[in-house]
């Protein structure tokens, strides 16, 4: 059983060691338009709903706590308060149910879930979410980060823009930008910042926000045009750095994970690029892309089968936990 609560989603999932998902319920803390989620309020939300979600996960899977092998939770990276609120529940359940605990790196959870759901063996991974933007490839027992954002994450950039133009946070700001972008017709030139394999997004965020402030009311463009142009520009940057990593690593396949990964336009652009290189794109929908409990459970069970469990004192959380800090003992290939 896996527990996730590193950002505004709180989720519990039950997974078998072969990657079959028995249940995967989730609840999202949604704030009013124009506002984001703050750590304290988010943690409060998680505390209020997590026990119901645990019960729901057990009911949907049709199992009793005694059928579980281990409890896996997100150790990091993420927001401190929400992470801890979930870890406390896991420590408690571990003592009641007498089950061992396995800490999981959130990013590795995304990667392993994507690999098992899509059947991708050794892809270049583009991990794009509200807090992370990384291009990752496996090399010698580590998921190495080849390119990443040098300032804010893609999802964060999109969320902040959504807040500026007052889009709803339900189901997510990114989804609403995607829908609005479909109505956009005019392409507005925006800053395009690729530095080697890394990208920078703070400049385009400021630009898009100031365009929104000055041009929408003046009737020079619509919010839809801005959403469309913002997506086109940012996603082109992401596809470019992914392609550079593929060229560098001689890889053919790409796996997209993370919340922004369910954006269909991003998947489309990536599919064109990967197709031209003769490779295959692996992408998932919102059930697995967005933070969920099953991904933590699956990454955790892989580590558990390698004998990795944590003592009560080791069940800490950390806001900063790099993807390449994890020694990937369960993969035997180079």
């Amino acid at each position: 059983m896996g527990f996730e609560g590193s950002a505004n989603k709180v989720a519990v999932g039950v997974v078998s060691h072969t990657g079959d998902i028995l249940s995967n319920p989730r609840k999202t803390y949604i704030t009013p338009p124009g506002t984001g989620f703050l750590p304290r309020e988010t943690a409060e939300h998680h505390r209020q709903v997590i026990l119901d979600i645990v019960q729901q996960a057990l009911d949907e899977a049709g199992i009793a706590p005694s059928d579980l092998d281990c409890l896996c939770y997100t150790k990091g990276p993420g927001m401190g308060a929400p992470l801890v609120s979930v870890a406390v529940v896991v420590r408690m359940l571990s003592q009641i149910w007498k089950k061992p605990i396995v800490p999981v790196n959130h990013c590795v959870g995304h990667i392993e879930m994507g690999r098992v759901v899509c059947g991708a063996m050794d892809p270049v991974v583009l991990y794009v979410s509200g807090g992370n933007t990384q291009v990752i490839a496996y090399n010698e027992r580590r998921y190495r980060i080849f390119g990443e954002t040098i300032d804010i994450a893609v999802g964060n950039c999109l969320d902040r823009f959504a807040r500026e133009i007052g889009l709803s946070n339900d189901p997510s700001p990114g989804y609403n930008i995607e829908q609005l972008a479909k109505k956009g017709t005019k392409y507005i030139d925006m800053p395009y910042t690729v530095k080697g394999m890394d990208i920078s997004l703070s400049g385009i965020e400021t630009f898009a926000k100031s365009e929104a402030r000055t041009k929408i009311d003046a009737g020079e463009c619509t919010a839809a045009d801005l959403c469309y142009s913002l997506q086109e520009t940012i996603f082109a940057m992401l596809v470019e750095i992914t392609e550079r990593t593929m060229a560098h690593c001689n890889a053919n396949d790409v796996l997209i994970v993370g919340g922004v990964g369910c954006n269909v336009r991003l998947q489309e652009m990536m599919r064109v690029m990967v197709g031209e290189r003769g490779g295959k794109l692996y992408a998932t929908d919102d059930r697995y892309c967005i933070d969920n409990g099953a991904m933590i459970a699956y990454a955790g069970i892989l580590a558990f089968m390698e004998g990795q469990t944590a003592t009560m004192a080791e069940t800490i959380c950390t806001q900063r936990y790099r993807t390449d800090d994890v020694l990937v003992t369960w993969r035997k290939d180079k």
Binding site: S6, A7, T74, G76, P77, G78, M79, H106, C107, S129, G130, G131, N132, T133, Q134, E148, T149, I150, D151, A153, N156, D198, D291, Q319, R320, Y321, R322, T323
Partner: peptide, 13 residues
């Protein structure tokens, strides 16, 4: 500085 920023980039899940 850039190196530190790069390393800290794993803030939020």
């Amino acid at each position: 500085e850039v190196r530190m920023r790069g390393r800290k980039r794993s803030m939020i899940g």
